[in-house]
């Protein structure tokens, strides 16, 4: 008999994540795919794979979150904020301030001592300050995500880059490359700029708090370090940071 008691699906703007958990909240199997516009088809495929690998019955409840949450046939549909908070609390077991940097959203959530959402802030109107911002600029610099740490290492002087608008920042980077600025300096400047924007979003929520990070961008150690510097405190990255939303969704229906 399968140990899977709940499934969580986080259908984000960039990637779709699905997890199956056991009664203790342990992730038995997970799927991460680039998000497809045909949400229903993609979700069905992910669910079929989860069920096949874990032996989860069709009756196992599903919690859905993320941009595509309303298109998923789920037992419970919740926003990313509520799910990330739940996922983070599962890992920490205490109050914390969670910075979730996803594809198009950056959220700062104050999680209470009981795991409740006490306050939150999200980037508004513009995706500058999110994973997409990094993706766009890295593509322009032709730096693969997994090479950031290596390419940004060293004594490079960070170049100042505006973070008001992703499109404008991209033009700025093109111009910097043309002027012969070393990629390491541009990368350092890029992370610093992004971190300062997130720190400003966090405002007082990050003061005197145990700051944790989730979301795909949390896998980028250079970003975690830059954010820690901007907030003036070390940041703890949650285990499987990209899966925290899906885990939270599963925990809600466990």
């Amino acid at each position: 008999m399968s140990d899977a008691v709940a499934i969580g699906v986080d259908c984000g703007s960039t990637t779709t994540k699905a997890v199956a958990i056991d009664s203790g909240g342990r992730i038995l199997y997970s799927v991460v795919e680039r998000s497809h516009p045909r949400i229903e088809e993609q979700t069905e495929r992910c669910l079929a794979l989860l069920r096949e690998r874990t032996g989860a019955a069709a009756s196992v409840p599903i919690g859905a979150t993320g941009y595509g949450r309303k298109r998923i046939a789920a037992s419970r549909v919740l926003t990313e904020i509520t799910c990330h908070a739940r996922g983070a609390f599962f890992h920490t077991g205490k109050a914390c301030t969670l910075v979730d940097m996803g594809g198009q959203d950056t959220k700062v959530i104050r999680v209470g001592p009981g795991g409740d959402v006490q306050d939150f802030a999200m980037n508004d109107k513009c995706a500058a300050g999110t994973g997409r911002f990094l993706e766009v600029i890295l593509a322009r610099l032709e730096v693969p995500l997994d090479e950031i740490a290596q390419r940004a290492a060293g004594e490079a002087r960070p170049v100042s880059i505006s973070s008001t608008c992703t499109v404008f920042a991209e033009s700025e980077v093109i111009s910097l490359v043309a002027q012969g600025e070393p990629v390491a300096g541009i990368l350092a400047g890029l992370h610093r700029s992004l971190a300062s924007r997130v720190a400003s979003l966090a405002g007082s929520m990050a003061a005197d708090a145990d700051v944790r990070m989730s979301g795909g961008v949390a896998k980028n150690a250079t970003m975690v370090e830059a954010l820690g510097r901007a907030l003036g405190r070390p940041i703890g990255v949650l285990p499987d940071p990209q899966l925290v939303g899906a885990l939270g969704a599963a925990l809600w229906v466990r």
Partner: peptide
């Protein structure tokens, strides 16, 4: 007004 973003914020607010 961005309905998707706005409604997510309102949804999370109500869930809290």
């Amino acid at each position: 007004w961005s309905p998707e973003q706005g409604n997510t914020r309102l949804g999370a607010f109500m869930e809290s």
